[in-house]
């Protein structure tokens, strides 16, 4: 087990390094004069020269990469390379702030959005999936399956718009202002407001995810429910609810955990559409605006963040599924 974890960690680091080198090289190759793209509007030649010096843009790209990793741009004195402590991801000359600082300021929003949505969609998918699998072909199964197909096929932007139309616009026309349509309030400032502001974005993400996960839970439950050990549990006189949730669900959960880890990682890298619709200032928005505006220190930073989250999450999923399996432990 320990050896397996070490091997996995080594592979994960190699993956991250590859992502880093590729994104870095691409941003350097894409522009003939990167300094001009990086600089704020109407920058003087002096500023441009400063940027060129700070990023060593006059040197070959692999030396630039070396510089990026071990020293960081020569601004504000302290080194801010990726391999320094605290690790830095470069500097946004447009926004005049270090990239790590920018990303850290957006993380609470994205994390709240992703984890809250995960809690909602996992709970509901498991309930709906188990209910469907308990009586396949029943009217309940058909209704739940139809709903999940609908959630799966409607694009997120439409779900988001529909939800804010009915749950914000229509409700507030009756004077019921339950769900604000945009904005964010920190969890530590006011937990209730935090949840109220995030309710619609959570639902938007959950609708699409339930569409997938209800199907996955149902299919795996049906598989497991046909197993001999489920019959053994019934033969012992175990109650049907315990058969479903105690015996079948625990055996059916592995694919759900695997898929859940991947979906969660994708969301933490930035739920771009949802953040746009509900005016949430998260990592996704930061990444999109940086990409459109050519602020590529931020592009590299958000890409590495997304890659790191993916790597960590697949790693965590692997460890969890292994811990659950007595044969692999």
């Amino acid at each position: 087990m320990r050896r397996h974890i070490a091997a996995h960690a080594a592979r994960a680091l190699a993956t991250l390094l590859a992502v880093l080198v590729i994104t870095f090289a691409m941003t350097r190759i894409a522009y003939r004069n990167p300094a001009a793209v990086l600089a704020p509007r109407n920058a003087t030649q002096e500023t441009l020269d400063g940027i060129t010096r700070a990023l060593r843009l006059d040197e070959p790209w692999y030396l630039q990469l070396w510089h990026y990793l071990f020293r960081g741009p020569d601004i504000q004195g302290a080194p801010m390379g990726l391999f320094n402590w605290p690790p830095g991801l470069g500097y946004s000359f447009r926004q005049q702030r270090p990239v790590t600082e920018l990303i850290l300021s957006k993380i609470p929003v994205t994390l709240s959005l992703a984890l809250g949505a995960l809690a909602i969609w996992m709970t509901l998918s498991i309930l709906f999936g188990v209910a469907s699998a308990a009586r396949p072909g029943s009217w309940l199964d058909r209704v739940l399956s139809a709903l999940s197909y609908a959630g799966l096929s409607v694009p997120t932007f439409l779900t988001g718009i529909l939800l804010s139309y009915f749950l914000y616009f229509t409700l507030s026309s009756y004077g019921l202002k339950w769900f604000p349509a945009s904005g964010y309030v920190g969890l530590t400032e006011d937990p209730l407001e935090w949840a109220r502001h995030l309710a619609l974005p959570w639902l938007t993400i959950a609708v699409a995810e339930i569409g997938i996960f209800q199907r996955v839970v149902r299919a795996n439950m049906l598989d497991v429910l046909g197993a001999d050990y489920i019959r053994t549990a019934r033969a012992k006189g175990v109650s049907e609810r315990r058969v479903l949730f105690g015996h079948a669900l625990s055996a059916a959960l592995n694919p759900v955990i695997t898929l859940g880890g991947l979906e969660l990682a994708a969301l933490m890298g930035g739920a771009i559409v949802t953040e746009q619709i509900f005016g949430l200032d998260g990592v996704g928005r930061l990444a999109v605006e940086a990409a459109l505006g050519g602020d590529f220190p931020v592009v590299i930073g958000t890409t590495i963040l997304a890659a790191a989250i993916f790597v960590v999450s697949t790693f965590a999923v692997d460890v969890v599924t292994r811990l659950r399996d007595p044969a692999a432990r």
């Binding site: 050990y229 019959r231 053994t232 033969a235 012992k236 006189g237 015996h247 007595p326």
Partner: peptide, 19 residues
């Protein structure tokens, strides 16, 4: 079942919960 009638099935691997 279980209290008054006990069961033993054929394949003891597939009939025990693996987890």
């Amino acid at each position: 079942r279980g209290r008054h009638i006990g069961f033993v099935f054929q394949d003891p691997l597939s009939n025990l919960h693996p987890l």
